[in-house]
């Protein structure tokens, strides 16, 4: 079904010890939908995203990813991770492997792909993110922007249905942000379901179907970008927008 719910969260709550980081989260992401999560630091947006592929456990509510119910159980988490790809703020490329080897590691060991097929797939993806000529370089020999593009290709190598991005450009120098955002825009145009935590509001305006604003562990506002940026309903959203758009 075209509008099948890819991610469904109902009444989700999460605590770190006594401190509640997520309060009663209700969120649904349809197939092909692009969601941008934004909010002040400490609002819980990174935690929310990391919850979707099981990197963070949750204590209350229900999370369903592509029909699989995500309980705090190994088998469910493994199944979900097969459908979800993640890109991190600090890239997390494997430093002892080349770019090509970073991409072929999971297909070979998880999907049991023969090496040649895995390498062909890897080169194709590196081509797509315009970095094929660096295939045999090690991460330390690449710039930040190049590393993040390799990281995106690495996540795509597992053919995920959903791509999660946790502040993908926050650790990059300004001149490299564009090359990574360009790749993400292309990915969006191809119909990938994406959940992106970012401060890049330009990206949100052009690509997002919905902007979800979080503050202190709650979803405060959720609206299409035009509505959110031009006529935010809540005071907190207005305050946030004035702070980040002010400079």
């Amino acid at each position: 079904m075209a509008n099948a719910s890819m991610i469904e969260m109902r009444g989700v709550g999460k605590w770190f010890g006594r401190f509640q980081v997520l309060k009663d989260i209700d969120l649904a992401v349809a197939q092909g939908e692009k969601i941008v999560l934004c909010g002040p630091s400490g609002s819980g947006k990174s935690t929310l995203v990391r919850l979707v592929n099981g990197l963070e456990p949750y204590q209350a509510g229900q999370v369903t990813v592509d029909g699989i119910e995500l309980k705090n159980d190994a088998k469910a988490i493994e199944a979900v991770r097969g459908e979800v790809g993640m890109v991190f703020q600090s890239f997390n490329l494997f430093p002892h492997l080349t770019a090509l080897e970073n991409l072929t590691l999971a297909p070979v060991w998880v999907r049991r792909m023969p090496k040649k097929d895995a390498e062909a797939l890897a080169l194709q993806l590196l081509e797509r993110v315009r970095i094929a000529e660096q295939a045999h370089k090690y991460p330390a020999q690449l710039s930040g922007g190049q590393q993040q593009r390799v990281a995106i290709a690495r996540a795509l190598a597992m053919r995920p249905k959903i791509m999660l991005f946790d502040e993908p450009t926050s650790a990059l120098d300004p001149e490299m942000i564009k090359e990574v955002l360009d790749v993400m825009v292309e990915l969006a145009a191809e119909g990938m379901t994406m959940v992106v935590v970012t401060h890049e509001m330009g990206f949100a305006r052009t690509v997002a179907d919905r902007v979800v604003f979080m503050d202190q562990g709650e979803i405060v506002e959720s609206a299409p970008p035009k509505t959110f940026f031009e006529a935010p309903r809540t005071e907190r959203a207005r305050l946030f927008l004035s702070q980040i758009l002010g400079h």
Partner: peptide, 29 residues
Amino acid sequence: DRGQSEAAYSLGLSRRRTTRLVILPQALR
């Protein structure tokens, strides 16, 4: 770095494979 195992898990690698292919080579160095 903790991020290394997080990235490996996100790609679907099991705990054992992650330790053997990602963590151990770096730790041994």
